[in-house]
Amino acid sequence: MVYSVAIAGASGYAGGELLRLLSAHPEFEVRTVTANKNAGQPLVALHPHLRSYAGMVLQETTAEVLKGHDVVFLALPHGHSGALAAELGDASLVVDCGADHRLTSADAWEKFYKSEYHGSWPYGLPELLLPSGVKQRENLAGVNRIAVPGCNVTAVSLALAPGLRAGVVQPIDLGAVLAVGPSGAGKTLRTDLLASEILGSAHAYGIGGTHRHVPEIIQNLSGPGEPVTVSFTPVLVPMARGILATSTARLQPGVSAADVRSAWSLAYADEPFVQLLPEGEFPSVSDTIGANTALIGLMVDEAAERVVTVTALDNLVKGTAGAAIQSTNIALGLPEGLGLPVNGVAP
């Protein structure tokens, strides 16, 4: 069976990456692409690298245009998916690559996003280890709504969840500092994202618990009656795409380095898209560019009594479009990895 696909927000970075990956998917056919201010333009005018879509024209983003497809991907800015999704009905599988349906707490949404809350959808991070001991993929089969995680959230959640679920690290005083590329902010023209501003420099933002991804990280890592505390600091660096997340956690008393490595090894032993590197090895962002792969390096800092993880992923693939397609595969009963690359592009 071939599933018909529409992509709202196809002119942006996330939309473009969805298109690139879907071009190699044997079960999906992109039939409709939409945009807002770019409606009416040829798709390849916005994405000249996507030659297989020559001839497609961006239509206006409306529910009427999107209805009638088997799968609708919403690659829209935060705050723009909720109302549109409510008009689409239940006939289509709708996958939101924005933040509108990620948070289970209305209070957290209103505090960090300051707009109307549209509820939560099944969460599209299949490898996330839950407090019950199962993976989030168990909650995705057969659903018709999916909320794709934030890219930074993916890196931190995958980095720390195994230790928390195994009880080898403490839930308080988690830390994460991330080097991130500006493509995560989308194509919006902003002075702080201009090449002249970021080349040869690096600057932190969303400091002191103010970043919108903080409540999502807490949501993913907390257990029943055991909320986590996390200090999360992203740092914008001059690379077009990618995330390198250094995440740390306090060891529980009496836990050995062997216990720590065992927790992460068991969590990801059978995961093709999340791989724990051998002891003493740590990933670079370039190892993951173009791939739906997160690579994790792990070490115990004995003197500081902390676990240190270094996680690399492509924010536009495993951090967004790849996760969306992976979760969609599960929802439709297709092989989870169908159409998704494990190998990156180098140099």
Rank of each mutant, 00 (worst) to 15 (best):
E17D: 04
A24F: 10
P26W: 07
E27D: 05
F28Q: 00
E29T: 05
T32W: 05
T34Q: 04
A35T: 05
A35K: 06
G40S: 01
G40M: 07
L43S: 01
L43M: 11
L50V: 03
A54N: 06
L58W: 10
V65G: 01
L66C: 08
V71C: 14
V71E: 10
L76R: 06
G82C: 07
E87K: 13
G89L: 13
G89Y: 03
D107T: 00
S115M: 04
G119T: 03
S120K: 06
E138M: 12
R145I: 12
V148C: 01
T154W: 11
S157Q: 07
A159T: 01
A159F: 09
A159E: 00
R165W: 12
A166H: 00
Q170T: 12
L174F: 14
P182G: 06
G184I: 15
T191P: 05
L193D: 01
S196Q: 09
L199D: 10
A204W: 04
V214T: 03
T233M: 13
V237P: 00
P238L: 07
M239W: 05
A245N: 07
R250H: 11
P253N: 06
D270M: 11
F273G: 15
F273V: 15
S286H: 11
D287M: 12
V300M: 05
E302M: 03
T311Q: 07
D314M: 09
V317S: 00
V317F: 07
E336I: 07
L340T: 01
